[in-house]
Design a protein around this nucleic acid. Structure first.
Lengths: 192, 192, 192, 192
DNA sequence: CATGAATGAGGATTCATTCAT
DNA sequence: TATGAATGAATCCTCATTCAT
């Protein structure tokens, strides 16, 4: 098994280490040297895979965001009814945010902070399209309120970030009943 | 009339500068020297008012959080009906997040990041009591769903942070109609 | 004796250390840390006086070049005859290059290398004017060959750099007789 | 016909790249990786041909110096008269410095800098013997001043380096008339 | 012979903090 | 109280060199 190329494993290890360290210590207080150590590589090696620290964080963001989207829509297809489709997607997103909380926390940090540059942020947004399409359909058929997508997202999806955060801070333990309640709240806020 | 005490003006200038710089550049990329410069003060002077950088940020957080709470509850009193009281509070919070967006953005950054230490975070939470009391009342009388406060907050209050963020990023412009829609969504998500 | 300002002594020590280290080790192989150590300051202190390494070297160059010019023309005034004036200047330059060989060597290194940026180089050239004026006078009255100033400089002044270099490399010891010979050669090469 | 030996082409490409990069950027700011890239070779390959960076520069210096000497004496033989022989050699040197200015510039940089180690420097000097012999002959027969060879070189040969430098910096354009003048100056400075 | 990946050591620069005034 | 100067300890990043293939 010849190693003729840059190893995807190393890249992944670096991404993983970045997430873990930024989550625990913040972007400040996450030196490249620590990332390298956690990924079991030399600091210099990072620069074979990424241009610089900013690039590393940008790329990590994009990758996690893509993972998030892929996960969210994996079980959805657009033949589903609006309500059912929404539920399917919502449950996946909830599952992602609560089981993959490392990734979700990282995204929350990036989304509320100037550590990601604008192009990468734009790149990360792209993947939401299926949800927007679903809402468009719902608005047309009258099942979803005719609100701006920003408002729909703010009330039906984004609250999960807050709940994930609270859980991560160990202030609150989300059980299945909570999930059901949360879904009800989400659906009530946007259904017509 | 000579000044015999540490100047509250300087302290305020430092807090203000911290907010502005952390908002624009992030906590990383906000050196003490820049804060000092923006506050028209020597770097050494900061240490007359704050123990160190962490302390400066903590105190700034607490101060802004207090301002936020004070603002939120200013027009509320507990003789109001649950629905009306909620609306009063909600509107104030919305107003704060959208007009005092510098402060709101700073809080959002702190709340999603490990830059604030735990004691300060706890300190900042205290002030929400009137809202929790209102919800307790609502749950008792059956107007508010019997959900955990975390869920109620996640669905009725926190979405405003997302909308503030979107507006700050100039992706979305919140007008009065949007505010009404947002309130409807908020209320629908928690009302019984 | 209050110290209220950046100390000119420290600046001078830094310039001096730069010259010594660049002379002995070359610009590469002269880390800021060594310069700091030799000047008995912290590395960070250098940046109070200079923008960066390039700036430090540029400024050092300009300073040494100015010293060189000042020294060269100190005993000259333009009422002297062309031949006598030239001799006066030439002797001073020779004296500078051979007694202040550290400075002269530094200049030689900068003049034959891309370590100085163009603006600084231009800045360094300015001060030669009195010599050019003298030559202009000599050309007019017929005592100096009507050659380009570059050629006159190449043949009458620049050779001293080579001799300084040889002496510094201990290949050659310049005594008074040599100086006389060198002056004769210089004068013969440009006199009419 | 497979190549069984280290390719002289690669070695040459490396030497050429070294010259170009050191000339344009200086020895500092010329990393091995750039040399490799310019020579279309892997960094590791350099170490098949040279021991290390110092060795690469030393060898480059020696090679260029040899080229310089060979060129200088190509049209000379020791049956020529002193004056004529000197003129022949001088013209070749001038031609080298002005047409092969890349090489000449590289030598000037090395000669005024501690980037070449002493043994290599000595090695480079050897080849000048024919000129020294010519001067010895000239001194004996009285056509050349009885000066040290260092002085003779400083005044008759070295000025060409300064002129080359000026031309390279585009401050000065050397035409045929200038060359004649320069030769006159050179000869006048050393002839008896 | 040739290479791209990998790295440890080191270099320029920044920064939170302290000190002398 | 207030400050500008000073600094040691990091931090990001580069680079000469080596290694596995």
């Amino acid at each position: 098994m010849p190693k003729l190329q840059k190893s995807i494993d190393k890249r992944n290890a670096l991404i993983k280490a970045t997430i873990a360290l930024v989550n625990n210590n913040g972007f400040h207080a996450t030196p490249m040297s620590k990332i390298a150590k956690m990924a079991s590589v030399s600091p210099a090696t990072i620069y074979l895979y990424f241009d610089n620290k900013q690039d590393l964080v940008n790329k990590t963001y994009i990758e996690v965001k893509a993972k998030y989207s892929d996960y969210s829509f994996e079980t959805y297809n657009d033949t589903m009814s609006v309500k059912n489709g929404f539920k399917i997607i919502w449950k996946r997103i909830a599952s992602f945010k609560l089981t993959e909380s490392e990734h979700a926390f990282f995204l929350a940090q990036c989304d509320n902070t100037p550590i990601i540059d604008e192009p990468s942020r734009q790149e990360g947004i792209k993947h939401l399209q299926p949800l927007l399409d679903l809402w468009a359909r719902g608005k047309k058929e009258g099942t979803i309120k005719p609100y701006s997508d920003y408002i729909l997202y703010a009330y039906s999806i984004n609250p999960l970030s807050f709940l994930m955060m609270s859980q991560k801070r160990e202030m609150f333990e989300l059980n299945d009943k909570h999930i059901e309640e949360a879904f009800t709240a989400a659906w009530n806020s946007i259904k017509n």
